[in-house]
Structures are given as structure tokens and as C-alpha cells.
């Protein structure tokens, strides 16, 4: 057997020790292959020993715990988003945020107490509504369309403004 053939056959072996008889005969007569083979076999045997050293049970338990810790992280987030509390809280927050945003868009300044009252009761002129209007068939909604009523409203607001300025010492 030639040296090349020897190494080709070595490559075909799944387990390098012990050598088949035919290969064993070759290394007995070939010093170069023998020395190469001894070094390889010894080194690989030692390496095998090293990589196959048994780890203690704590090592495996620790590994499992680490894996779980790293996997549970995204899972916890997923379950948090699935909770009904999260969505009810998020919906309520969003609704409040929308109301505040709406107020800021319609008003130039932060709404006063009066503004908030008006939000629910409507502007003061809509309250000028007596039984005569009811007889005439006017509703608060169409009062503004009537020019006479609008003039009356303007006068009444002008007198209110006059009174306010007089009381505070201003000029009309």
C-alpha cells in the first residue's frame, strides 16, 4: 500500500482508532506515515477527551434558566398587550387626548371655566328664547337667521359691555 492510499483510506474511516489491519501493516513499515499518524491520533484522542468532559448538572440547569430568561422577555410583552386593562386604559387615554387636542384646535388659548360651561350649555344668546318665540314657531337654532333678533342681540351685548366698562372705570 502506498502512503497516498493509506491517507485516502484514513479519510474514509468514521472512527480513527483502532486502525484496520491493512492500515496497521502500512504504518509498521512506513516511518513517515507512522509518525504523522501517531501525532494525529494522539492529538485527536486528547481533543475528544476535552470536548466530551461531562459538565455538572448545575451547568445544564443554568443553561436552561438562561434560555428561558431570554425567551420569556418578548413573551411577557406580548401578554401585556393582550391584557384587557391595557386596551381599556389606552382607549381612555386616547379619548382624553383627542378632547384636549380638539379644544386646542378650536381655541387660541387654554379653555376657561366659562368656555367649558358653554361647551355643555351652548352660547348665552341661545338662551334668549321666550314663549312668544314658541308661538311664532321660532326655535333657538334659527334665531340667528332672523335679522331683527340678531340686532336685538347685538344691542343687548353692547349694553352689557358698556356696563362692564363703566363699572371697571373704562371708557365706552
Amino acid at each position: 500500500m502506498k502512503c497516498k492510499e493509506f491517507w485516502q483510506q484514513i479519510e474514509g474511516l468514521s472512527d480513527i482508532t483502532p486502525l484496520p489491519e491493512e492500515l496497521q501493516r502500512h504504518i509498521e513499515i512506513c516511518d513517515t506515515c507512522n509518525r504523522q499518524w501517531q501525532v494525529l491520533a494522539t492529538g485527536l484522542k486528547e481533543l475528544k477527551k476535552e470536548i466530551c468532559c461531562q459538565e455538572d448538572p448545575l451547568f445544564w440547569a443554568n443553561m436552561k434558566a438562561n434560555i428561558r430568561k431570554k425567551i420569556d422577555k418578548p413573551k411577557a410583552w406580548r401578554s401585556f398587550f393582550k391584557q384587557w386593562r391595557f386596551w381599556s386604559f389606552a382607549t381612555a387615554t386616547l379619548a382624553i387626548a383627542l378632547v384636549i387636542f380638539g379644544l386646542f384646535c378650536t381655541k387660541d388659548v387654554v379653555p376657561t371655566k366659562q368656555d367649558i360651561v358653554e361647551m355643555f350649555t351652548g352660547p348665552p344668546y341661545l338662551n334668549i328664547y321666550d314663549e312668544n318665540d314658541a308661538i311664532r314657531g321660532n326655535s333657538p337654532a334659527n334665531e340667528l337667521e332672523d335679522p331683527c333678533i340678531f340686532a336685538e342681540l347685538t344691542d343687548s351685548w353692547a349694553s352689557v359691555l358698556d356696563d362692564a366698562l363703566t363699572n371697571t372705570g373704562g371708557k365706552s
Binding site: 501525532v39 494525529l40 494522539t42 492529538g43 485527536l44 484522542k45 486528547e46 481533543l47 476535552e50
Partner: peptide, 8 residues
């Protein structure tokens, strides 16, 4: 043997 392992 341990040295050989190191070289391998």
C-alpha cells in the same frame, strides 16, 4: 499528549 493536542 496535551502539547500535541495544543498543536492540533
Amino acid at each position: 499528549a496535551s502539547e500535541i493536542k495544543h498543536y492540533i
